[in-house]
Design a protein around this nucleic acid. Structure first.
Length: 549
RNA sequence: GCGCCUAUAGCUCAGUGGAUAGAGCACUGGCCUCCGGAGCCAGGAGCGCAGGUUCGAGUCCUGCUAGGCGCGCCA
């Protein structure tokens, strides 16, 4: 909205020069408009003369002068000057401030958003941790990221579906069932040794106790060990699923669907169907008694087993079926948010997508790096199997939802993150999220005082700090679009920090109340607009914007 | 050995090929008889190493070093 405004203005000038025959016809190279960080460089800086110099075979400064001579007067800009090696620095006028406030007032909480339905149908799969224990704090980062990404994509006009894939089939779940069985029969004649691949966390005993409470000991009567374990596995998975849903809701994450590998894929015959389709395509072959998919034909670095020697389908086979199922539900684009341990898995998944004939770009994977959890500088082990991990519920109790989400979303998903629990708790009052929330609360407090009568005169907003706020507000729509396209919610977190900072600076230097009414009203409208965009930004991140703190 | 991610201030991290590289925390010094001091202003200190592309490189390319993760008929 803001940068494109300047882009258009300059392009019109260039097009005029081309029409007059002073510049050659044809497409001109693209250029960038940036928000200046040095006030002496204006509010915006364009580098077109630098880029054009080569095309036009003239020095950048001369190109700039020619361009400037042709540029039309625009109410948003006080003036535009040539600076440095050939930058164009644009300085905003009060008109722009008025335009910013009116734009935010007109759109409200939808400011900068695309209208729903104009984009793609996108399925975002995230968290999707094995259902063998309570959600680990490690999942908290992925949950915050996936949820915020989904919100961002919605704001960018896409139809977004949040999905959690429950891997409730396979050996890990069986190992969990065995462990529950161990606890149930521990003190009986039928006692078995602790399973070799068993889960050591205390929560497994809780599951055993819950089973006794809900089903009673008699539920196991007459079952052989295998059947009992199978029943216990199912019980455990269901219970853990309920724990997780509860924890995620407390964290502000609501999935549109928990997709069960066992029920929605295997029992529904989707895995066999997918395998049959692969057979039909002739991409399977037998070797060493197993059935392989020729994923190397689609760029993978080796072929992958889809049906084991014992005739059971692999996790990969189920995942092929799962992704095909997603496409069959009409989604244009699939985004998988995975942990970094899955990157070795990408090649075969891309192959699976290629086998559907879907365009390769329609399947995206975001690898969210681990957080390394420390406690007073000591690394906290994170093994679910060893039972040594921090459940998300405990973590949130210590750190708080807003603080946790904001901390995670301030970082790029690519960046490994060290998170010191002791530090996080002791400094929770110093968390950057409070800086942003404080700005919002401050604005709310301002607006509670002194009822506004009339609309004031927005053109009275001429102070440097007011123009900086106008610039920031006007750049929000582009910020949002960019963050969505880059799959980068952390840009929004940084934007909110910057907007809050610029508001605090304004507030400290200028009075909103107690100045002549037309100016006071105008400043209140500016403050309200800032508060509105702060709240919208925080909402995209799943963070609250309190009126009082 | 191969692949992916990472390396920026004392710490945790931003930085769509642009000008003098930023923020929070920590540290130092200032700032409301008045709208919320959870704030503002000022200060010190940094792009792992070596080449290359470019008018211009923290950003792109190559090599190296260090850390994380992966390379299973586990999921």
């Amino acid at each position: 909205m803001l940068r494109s405004h300047l882009t258009r203005l300059l392009e019109q000038a260039a097009s005029g020069l081309q029409k007059d025959g002073r510049w050659p016809e044809g497409a001109l190279p693209a250029f960038s408009v940036e928000i200046s960080d040095d006030p002496s460089h204006g509010h915006l800086a364009a580098n077109w003369p630098l880029v054009l110099a080569r095309t036009l075979k003239r020095p950048p400064k001369q190109v700039a002068a020619e361009l400037m001579a042709a540029v039309q007067v625009d109410p948003w800009f006080d003036h535009i000057e040539v600076a440095g090696a050939g930058f164009l620095n644009a300085f905003l006028a009060p008109q722009a401030c008025a335009a910013a406030i009116e734009a935010v007032e007109a759109a409200g909480a939808d400011y900068g958003k695309e209208t729903a339905g104009s984009g793609e149908r996108i399925l975002v799969e995230f968290v999707s941790a094995n259902p063998t224990g309570p959600l680990n704090v490690v999942s908290a980062r992925a949950a915050a990221y996936g949820d915020a990404l989904a919100s961002l994509l919605t704001a960018a006009g896409h139809q977004v579906w949040r999905e959690f894939y429950v891997n409730d089939a396979g050996t890990q779940v069986e190992a969990l069932g065995k462990t529950v069985y161990y606890w149930l029969v521990k003190d009986q004649q039928a006692a078995v040794p602790f399973p070799e691949d068993g889960y050591k966390g205390d929560y497994v005993r809780e599951i055993a106790q819950a089973f006794l409470a809900e089903r009673g000991e008699q539920a196991l009567f007459g079952l052989d060990q295998g059947a009992a374990i199978s029943m216990l596995s199912q019980f455990a998975v269901d219970l853990i699923g309920r724990w997780r849903e509860r924890d995620l809701l407390a964290y502000g994450v609501r999935f549109d669907r928990y997709f069960s590998e066992q029920q929605d894929l295997r029992a529904a015959g989707r895995v066999e169907a997918a395998l049959a389709e692969l057979e039909r395509q002739g991409v399977l072959y037998s070797q060493d008694g197993a059935r392989f998919m020729r994923t190397t034909a689609f760029g993978d670095d080796k072929d992958r087993v889809v049906v084991r020697k014992d005739n059971t389908p692999t996790y990969f086979a189920a995942d092929v079926a799962y992704h095909w199922d997603k496409y069959s539900r009409g989604f244009d684009r699939l985004i998988d948010v995975l942990g970094p341990d899955h990157h070795g898995y990408l090649g075969r998944m891309r192959a699976a997508v290629a086998a559907t004939g879907k365009p390769a770009e329609s399947f995206e994977v975001v690898l969210v790096q681990w957080i390394r959890l420390l406690r007073q500088g000591e690394l906290v082990a994170m093994s679910k199997r060893e039972g040594d991990f921090v459940p998300i519920a405990d973590f949130l109790k210590e750190v708080g939802v807003d603080s946790a989400r904001f901390t995670f979303l301030l970082r790029s998903p690519d960046s490994p993150l060290d998170f010191d629990l002791a530090l996080a708790v002791s400094e929770s009052q110093e968390n950057p999220v409070y800086y942003v929330q404080y700005a919002h609360a401050r604005i709310a407090s301002l607006l509670r005082q002194g009822a506004a009568a009339g609309s004031g005169d927005l053109l009275l907003l001429t102070e440097p700090e007011e123009l900086l706020l106008a610039r920031r507000l006007l750049s929000f729509p582009e910020e949002l679009t960019h963050a969505a396209a880059a799959r980068a919610p952390h840009h929004i977190a940084h934007y909110a920090m910057t907007l809050a900072q610029e508001f605090h600076a304004f507030y400290n230097r200028h009075r909103v109340l107690g100045v002549p009414e037309p100016l006071s009203l105008a400043r209140r409208r500016l403050a309200r607009a800032v508060g509105s965009v702060l709240k919208e930004s925080l909402a995209l991140l799943g963070v609250s914007a309190p009126d009082r703190m």
